[in-house]
Write a protein that binds this DNA or RNA. Sequence first.
DNA 1: AGCCTTTGACCAGCG
DNA 2: TCGCTGGTCAAAGGC
Length: 412
Amino acid sequence: MDGNGKEHQQPKQQQPPSPSKPLPSRPTTITLPPRSFTETFFSSGPGTMGFSPGPMTLLSSFFSDSDDCKSFSQLLAGAISSPNSKPPDDFSRPSNLTIAPPAPMFAMPLGLSPVSLPDSPGFGLFSPQGFGMTHQQALAQVTAQAAQANSIMHVQPEYSTPEISSTFTNNSAAHQQQQMVRSVADSGVKIQELSDFSQPDQRPESSSLAVDKPAKDGYNWRKYGQKHLKGSEFPRSYYKCTHPSCPVKKKVERSLDGQVTEIIYKGQHNHQPLQSNKRGKDTGGLNGNPNSQGSSELASRFQSGSGNVSEVRERKDQASSQATPEHVSGMSDSEEAGGEIDEDEPDPKRRTTEVRATETASSHRTVTEPRIIVQTTSEVDLLDDGYRWRKYGQKVVKGNPYPRWFSLLHRL
DNA sequence: AGCCTTTGACCAGCG
DNA sequence: TCGCTGGTCAAAGGC
């Protein structure tokens, strides 16, 4: 069939990292917990970012079937805008917080918003110029957002159940969030988002709309396989970009009710995204979306190569109740992220971008502590992020050779 | 007619 | 070496 020849060129590319390999530089991972969406956060921003669904919007596949459904961006929005950030509860938190030295991984307080950031060069993350930023710059911006959130929302030491605003479906906000994620991703920061929605009424209505279709991210995808992975209650579908010679693939996991639980993008598009008027059936999710144009932009970014995006993962995890730090990372940090780096990048120092959105697939889950985790490839990454962090916990994550530090951005 | 999905089989990596 | 597992192939059928 199509791409068969290419297919044979791909296998090696996707091989996981060899365990025998020396530990690659640690990828930066940001885990964004699902948080309540603060409307004001996004309504106050420029809102002209042109956010759009794209390769990074795994959400799109998850929610694209219905505009009413939350997108990854939206999840992210909720994740980063909530003042209810809560640190993992499975480790002790020092009563008197101290500024922690850079750590391979840290948790960020929620409440950051791209649109709430000052329109300064430093926040180029959300501007076109931001695409060229370095990983550290991106990281700094992410953290800056957290800081901003803190300054605005006064991060609360005590965490309460997040509330999802009805405006959570605000496209602009969602896109902004998405852009943030994308930008961060492009900069090489590995981002993970964990979204745990506990409110039954906030469940995406995609259940009934669930269609086994790839995300409307500006590209056409063709499903070439499906498999039920061991240990996973949901089947995983494999998609390829239909564009000739385009090596991009993505894996999509959907729950039984059709909700996307995880999307993993691999590779970079070597072509321009489809034009809105040329998109096929898959464009449905973008229809009527004023920001849909952004998908092309995002897609372009995705395929530009500058983003070093070898894998973007968005996940909606039904196991919200298990969203402990260990679960946040899900896999071994060094193992999974490092592998991606190796496979797509000759330079081991090149960071892999991974975006992972996790959300409980059940609408009856109880709230779990959402969090943002930034896993850096090196301590320097955090040292240079330009912000001060207060460590409130540390934990050795199974499978991860590096201790995970949990820090809160020092209030500005 | 062309493209897509489905699905069982096959392949390769890993323990 | 062998079994397990994830990923891919490719024929068949559908839209």
